[in-house]
Amino acid sequence: MTEYKLVVVGAGGVGKSALTIQLIQNHFVDEYDPTIEDSYRKQVVIDGETCLLDILDTAGQEEYSAMRDQYMRTGEGFLCVFAINNTKSFEDIHHYREQIKRVKDSEDVPMVLVGNKCDLPSRTVDTKQAQDLARSYGIPFIETSAKTRQGVDDAFYTLVREIRKHKEKMSKDGKKKKKKSKTKCVIM
């Protein structure tokens, strides 16, 4: 069974824990209790493949930012979460993405942009803004509501699919490099 290491990042209060708990335990946590770091595991079937999701729910508070490099190193894919009623959390996505790329030393890291709290009427981040940002990053965008469960499975499952595509691409690139290195030079 394939294991996928997913990391949920975003500013404090955007609903990272609520999304994760909704996926794992099928219930909505409405009281806000700032996370330092929590880890969850769940076995699911995605596109006919049974897999184990190892999900790291991270601290959004700035005082825990020193811990970010460590979990970013171990993560295979990242859910970059903002709240649709919090423009600052949307603007912060850029910083999370840049930090992930720096730590992973790669421009090509599996990510999904997630606009959470889409059940709320007080939207300050337009869907088109988020779609445009995701398009500019070359990553999928999904709106979710941890409260109603809308888009929750889709967000995590899409990230797994992005990781699969990335692994497939990397193995193809690896095979191309191996083929090239088999060419021999004969000096007579």
Rank of each mutant, 00 (worst) to 15 (best):
N116T: 15
C51N: 04
G151N: 13
G138W: 05
H166C: 07
K176Q: 07
I21N: 08
E107C: 13
K176F: 07
K104G: 07
E37Q: 03
L133G: 07
R135M: 13
D57T: 00
M111W: 13
G48L: 05
Y40W: 08
P34D: 00
T20N: 14
A18F: 00
T35A: 01
A66N: 08
V152C: 08
E91D: 10
P140A: 06
K169C: 12
T58K: 01
F156C: 12
R135K: 14
F78G: 01
G48M: 08
K167N: 12
L120Q: 03
E62I: 13
F28Y: 05
L79E: 03
E31W: 07
K147E: 09
D33R: 02
L79I: 11
F28H: 01
A155F: 04
T35N: 00
I46S: 04
C80P: 01
Q25V: 04
V45M: 07
K175E: 12
E76D: 12
Q129N: 14
E168V: 12
E91R: 13
V103E: 14
R164D: 06
M170T: 05
Q61W: 15
Q61E: 15
H27Y: 14
G174A: 06
K5F: 03
D126I: 07
E31K: 00
V14P: 02
A83L: 02
K42T: 04
S145F: 04
V8A: 07
D33Q: 07
S106L: 13
G75E: 04
S136F: 09
A59L: 15
N26V: 05
C51Q: 03
K104T: 13
K128M: 11
G13S: 09
E107D: 13
F141A: 01
K172R: 04
D173W: 14
V112Q: 02
T2D: 13
D69M: 06
K165V: 09
I100M: 15
H95Q: 15
Y71K: 00
D30Q: 04
Q22Y: 01
I46W: 07
D154W: 07
L6G: 03
A83K: 06
Y71T: 15
S122D: 13
Y40H: 04
L56T: 01
V81H: 14
V109F: 11
D54F: 01
K128P: 09
G12Y: 06
R68W: 13
K117D: 12
L133S: 09
D47W: 02
K176N: 07
N86T: 02
T158M: 12
Q22E: 03
V7N: 08
T183W: 13
V125G: 10
R123P: 08
D30S: 09
T35S: 00
S106V: 13
E162S: 10
D126G: 09
Y96L: 15
Y4M: 11
Y137R: 08
K172D: 02
L120R: 14
S17V: 05
K167P: 05
C185Y: 06
I100D: 03
V186A: 11
H27K: 11
K128F: 08
C80N: 04
V112A: 05
G174E: 15
D132C: 07
E162F: 03
P140S: 15
I21S: 07
K5M: 14
M72I: 14
Y157P: 05
L113R: 02
Q129T: 13
A130E: 10
M72L: 14
C51F: 06
R123V: 09
E3F: 04
K178F: 14
D38F: 00
G60S: 02
L6D: 06
R102G: 05
I55S: 04
Y64V: 15
L19Y: 03
D153A: 08
V103P: 01
V81E: 14
D38T: 01
V152K: 03
L52H: 08
V7D: 03
R164C: 10
V9S: 08
L53N: 07
C80I: 13
C185F: 09
K104R: 14
I36N: 00
A66L: 13
K16T: 03
G60Y: 05
Q131T: 13
L133F: 11
G115H: 05
T74V: 15
V152G: 06
G10M: 03
S17R: 00
V186I: 13
T144F: 02
L159H: 13
H166N: 12
E98P: 02
I142V: 06
H27V: 07
Y96C: 06
R123C: 12
L19M: 12
E76S: 06
R68L: 14
E31L: 03
G12S: 07
M111I: 09
T35G: 00
C118D: 11
V44H: 03
V160Q: 05
P140H: 04
S136M: 14
E98F: 03
V29Y: 04
K104Q: 14
T124M: 09
C118F: 08
H27I: 11
G138N: 11
D126E: 10
D57R: 00
D47E: 06
E49D: 08
E107W: 09
T124V: 10
D57F: 00
D33P: 01
G10E: 05
L133A: 10
L79M: 04
Y64E: 11
D105M: 10
K88A: 07
A59M: 15
V8H: 02
T20P: 02
I163F: 07
T74Q: 15
K182E: 09
Q43N: 03
R102S: 05
G75W: 06
E37T: 00
I46K: 04
I24V: 13
I163K: 04
D30C: 07
T87N: 08
L56E: 00
D119R: 02
S122K: 10
C80M: 13
V160R: 08
G15N: 05
A59H: 15
F82V: 05
I36Q: 00
R68Q: 15
L120H: 06
V45A: 06
T74L: 15
D108M: 13
L6S: 02
I21W: 04
S65D: 14
I100Y: 10
D119E: 08
Q129R: 11
G12L: 03
L53Y: 13
F90N: 07
K101G: 12
S145E: 11
K42D: 02
V14Q: 13
Q25D: 01
G115L: 11
T58V: 12
K167Q: 09
E91G: 07
V8C: 07
M67A: 00
C80D: 03
C80V: 13
V109R: 04
G77W: 08
L79H: 01
S122Y: 09
F90S: 10
A134L: 11
Q70K: 05
D38K: 00
Q70P: 01
K184A: 05
P121Y: 09
P34W: 00
K16L: 00
P34I: 12
Q61N: 04
H95M: 15
Y32T: 01
P34Y: 02
E62K: 05
D153S: 06
M67P: 13
V109I: 14
E49C: 05
S106I: 10
P110R: 03
V125N: 10
E3L: 05
D132M: 08
T20A: 10
G77R: 01
S39Q: 05
D38V: 01
T50C: 14
Y137C: 09
A83Q: 15
R123A: 12
V81Q: 12
E76H: 04
D54C: 00
S65Q: 06
P110C: 04
G77P: 04
D54N: 03
L6C: 05
V103D: 08
Q25M: 14
D30P: 04
K101Y: 07
Q70H: 04
G60R: 02
E107T: 13
N26M: 15
D54E: 09
V8E: 05
L23F: 13
M111D: 04
T20R: 00
L53S: 05
K167E: 09
R149F: 03
L56Y: 02
Q70A: 00
N86L: 02
M188C: 07
P121L: 10
C80Q: 05
I84Y: 15
T183H: 03
P34F: 13
E107M: 14
K117N: 14
F28Q: 00
Q61M: 14
P34A: 02
G13C: 12
D69I: 04
C118A: 13
M72K: 01
D119F: 06
E62S: 06
L52D: 02
R97L: 15
S39I: 11
F78I: 13
K175Y: 14
V7Y: 14
Q61Y: 14
K175F: 13
V160M: 05
D154C: 07
T74K: 01
K16V: 00
Y157D: 09
R68F: 15
R73F: 11
A59Y: 15
Q43H: 03
K16S: 03
Y40S: 01
